[in-house]
Amino acid sequence: MYALEAIEIIKVYGQTRVLDKVTIRVNAGEIYGLLGPNGAGKSTLMEIILGLRRQDSGTVKIFGVETRNRDFDKKLVGYVPQDHLLYENLSGIDNIKYFAGLYGVPRKAFKERLDSLKNFLELDDNILKKDVVKLSGGQRRRVALAASLIADPKIIIMDEPTTGLDPNIRRDFWRLITDLNKEGKTILLSTHYMEEADELCDRVSIIDRGRILVTGAPDDLKKQYGGEESIILRLKSRYLDHAQMLFEDMGGSIVANEYIKIPGLNEVDIPRVKKSLDETGIPVEGIEVRRPTLEDVFINLTGRRLVEE
């Protein structure tokens, strides 16, 4: 049995099909990513899975029970929204108590759970006593996460959980997600950060314009759709043409008028490339090996970047 299944989901707004027969199947205990640009349909799919929106057709099941079913236990699912969605005029602890009350968490269990979450999320009393409006972005995310986890859900659905966080806090958050997964939580997260999907997810579905393009482990997707490794040469712009001629028969080309890309080469080939440049007197500013990323997968599948400039 899958922890979560969304089968053949269709959602139409006016003339636009924002989700077109989307199917995802999340195994218990895995971190599953939905990777796609803004407007791809990730949030709509998340909201349909959560029951916040109604699909035009298709089925959502959590541990085999349809979410529309009266028997469905909402306590199984925790939600971490993109914008923290806390009561700003309440303190952090009041927010957590409020949701504990709504989920019907017994007092004793609440105390134990809160202590464990405080420890896990590094939430001290000082943070928890402050009104949410006075907390930093990272602190709000932690409180929001605590509010989502207080009922001890089996599946946690995270909608772009690190959008807007600075890189250091984002890395901290990644660690928390990994730790939660180690505790046995199944996690479905949507993101438009390919590093996030790459770093965290066991499997990823790449979604664009309401359709799932591919699904698989990040390494498998990169191998299959990401293209070859390549060497990137960073040179002063006046040497770009000369260098391109030098590596033309190896497939070298100028990319974005910024650097030379020589496909099919890796670390082993760096001395050979360096020697050729030295012999022709072209000074090198930087040389690196570039491995395919999920961004490359997306570009190769759609012809567009994940995050448009």
Binding site: K74, K75, L102
Partner: peptide
Amino acid sequence: KAGTIKRLILTPV
């Protein structure tokens, strides 16, 4: 307006 209604709907309430 604040979107907190989403969280309320998601609880068993």
